[in-house]
Design a protein around this nucleic acid. Structure first.
Length: 346
DNA sequence: AAATCGGGGCT
DNA sequence: AGCCCAGATTT
């Protein structure tokens, strides 16, 4: 039996039961693929259910406000996915009359849809022989064929795509693609896979040369930089606080946060009080400062470690409009802020 | 080619 | 602490 055939056979026996495997509706598949980018099934599953329930078709998604889409996405991370999902939905409804793109090439024109996602939708929904190459596929192919080209080098990206495209079962691209990914997720796991029960143990290069733990090879990324975040949690006498929308570049675009003061180092109470006394907002505005967390909350992102303190600033009244405290939980916020709001409960 | 963009889970 | 996850986009 050929590699592809064995793989599909393995899949038919071992595949997990997942909601997006019960449909070929391109909108549903698209939604699942965007949610699952760099996201484990367990984490993405409740979001998939929530989105499909709130927005059953691309038309409802297109009609929604972005703020609502981001609120539903809250906690999942990589928020450009939500913004691009929404923009693409509007494009499909307004420019394509709601007709979903049906080829790899057309799918690539959607915001947030790259090589992997276009291949996934084209194969699963439209039977196109476009090979997917995700983290699972890199791992399975690099081990089975003993390929040590770094998977995140430009050469590696091309080579693995070419190899996957050669292997794909053109009679059943949908099942081949899902089979190789599922095999990577369930059997050919990153850490200590049980190779003794693997159907490919006889022909797997990495297993037979004892290279399972060396493959795949990946170029290391730079270490995360430390940042020091100080959030000002205003509380006014009439029960309001301040939330600001994050604009421009950087993390958490279009999400809300308490006014942020970033510092070069961790701030203690006296130093921070002096700093904000000198700040614009404090002019003719008496305030009482207290520190919510003496120990910084460390929020770890891929490229930043955020050392965070929440400063409670009690004032009589706000200079700006502000937000009623009971409405705070209607805003989409980073989970770092959301956790604070939940714990503090005003 | 390298950096950026989240958050959770696992070792 | 380091690595991975049904990657895409920008620099």
């Amino acid at each position: 039996m050929q590699f592809s055939e064995s793989l599909i056979n393995w899949y038919s026996i071992n595949k997990r039961s997942l909601p997006w495997r019960e449909t070929k509706d391109p909108y549903s598949i698209w939604l699942s693929e965007i949610i699952l980018q760099q996201t484990q099934v367990k984490q993405g599953l409740p979001y998939y259910e929530a989105f499909l329930s709130e927005f059953p078709t691309v038309f409802q998604l297109a009609s929604a406000d972005e703020s609502k889409v981001l609120k539903l996405w809250q906690g999942l991370g990589y928020y450009s996915r939500a913004r691009n999902l929404h923009a693409a939905a509007k494009y499909i409804v307004n420019e394509l009359n709601g007709r979903f793109p049906s080829t790899y090439k057309e799918l690539l024109t959607l915001k947030g849809v790259g090589d992997y996602t276009a291949s996934a939708i084209a194969s699963i929904c439209f039977n196109e022989s476009a090979a997917v190459v995700d983290g699972n596929v890199y791992r399975v192919l690099s081990r089975y064929y003993g390929i040590d080209i770094p998977i995140n080098s430009s050469k590696g990206t091309k080579e693995f795509k070419t190899l996957a495209q050669e292997l794909i079962d053109k009679k059943d691209p949908a099942n081949f693609n899902q089979a190789i990914m599922e095999f990577g997720a369930v059997q050919c796991k990153p850490h200590s896979p049980d190779c003794t029960i693997c159907p490919f143990k006889d022909s797997c290069e990495a297993f037979n040369k004892n290279l399972i733990n060396q493959l795949p090879v990946k170029i290391k990324s730079a270490k995360a930089k430390k940042k020091y975040f100080n959030f000002l949690v205003f509380i006014s006498g009439d029960g309001k606080t301040i939330l600001e929308k994050r604009e421009g570049k950087g993390i958490w675009q279009n999400l809300y946060q308490f006014p942020l003061m970033e510092t070069e180092a961790e701030m203690d109470f006296d130093a921070f009080k002096r700093q904000i006394e000198a700040h614009e907002f404090a002019k003719d505005m008496p305030f009482e400062l207290s520190l919510y967390n003496e120990k910084s909350v460390v929020h770890k992102l891929s490229h930043q470690h955020l050392y965070t303190k929440f400063w409670i600033v009690n004032v009589e009244s706000l200079k700006t409009e502000g937000v009623s405290i009971e409405k705070v939980d209607q805003f989409a916020v980073p989970i770092l802020i959301g956790n604070f709001i939940e714990a503090f409960s005003f």
